[in-house]
Amino acid sequence: MLAELVFSMTAMTTTDQTVQVAKGSKLDVNNFAGDVNVKVWDRDSVRVEVTHSDREAIDIKQDEQILRIRGRSLRGGPPRSLDYTITVPGWMAINVNGTYADVTLEGVGGDVAIETTRGDIKVRGGSGFISLKSVQGDISLEKAKGRVEVRAVNEGMHLVDINGDLSAETTNGSIILDRIDSGNVDLYTVNGNISYDGPIKDRGVYRLTTHNGMIAMPVAERVNATLTLRTYNGSIRSSFQLTPPSGDDAQKRNKRMTVTLGNGSAHVELESFGGAISLRRPGEPRPETEQRRRPRERVKVDMPDIDQIVEDALAGAFEYAPHPVPVPVPLPMPMPMPVPRPR
């Protein structure tokens, strides 16, 4: 990516190193900017490939049970944008930290902890404790099992084939889930839809909350759950019959209701201040996810001028922020939210 521009001006070196790791070791990568691609192979060793200039050194250190990988600028300051390709054993736990790093993990099998400020996170696999955090950037997770925690801010997320406890939060974006198998789910967004797909398990707890957006969830015919559905400006819909008791206030019924199904052992709490709550039978269409696939209006954010940051660093300016980004990024106002009105 951007690193190539920089490389063209300086002498290039390739680091390609393979180190043996003991079972149970953990990988810890810190990359300020650039790609971190992790894939797996069938050996108990880690291969690190990265192309960089002669102004940087790559430190690969192994102590105790942690293999640490850091880029280091030989002239001080943070290193330039570095693109890593790292091959690890399938059992290895992965920890990646970065600021402008895009992180892709393919087929990993242990704990995963990724934190980046502005970058995409894409993970296939993971088992144990899986934590993904980004402020701006797409987050997607597939085929993970264990305890999953996802935190975004200005972006939605897509989680597929998750088995285990799940907690996901964002501020400005939708949370879309496919094929989830979990008895403990906590999802929260301020401005976005939440679409769930998966069975409601006996004695499970499912909490789906948005301020402005739709919440959709499948409810199978034979299920043991207490559904608590609450909205303020939205409405409650269902593709199947919810028979209200006679004399119930129709207006209220459309905003707040509790439905006990079977023995009611699972707790399902769906809340949207301003949007609809929509129940369907498993297998019925999910219009809310179609919406997502259309190009949606996004807050347009350019990647920072990494070269500028690098030049600052090389010049000894360690605080990179003061440098003006040439054009101030205009941010559209948040999606208009309905004005509350008394019911």
Binding site: T117, R118, V135, Q136, V153, N154, T171, N172, V190, N191, V299, V301, D302, P304, I309, Y320, A321, P324, V325, P328, V329, L331, M333, P334
Partner: peptide
């Protein structure tokens, strides 16, 4: 950087 600040402020606004 300014963009990150802008994103944070935008979301605080929301």
């Amino acid at each position: 950087d300014k963009t990150t600040i802008a994103i944070v402020e935008h979301n605080l606004q929301i």
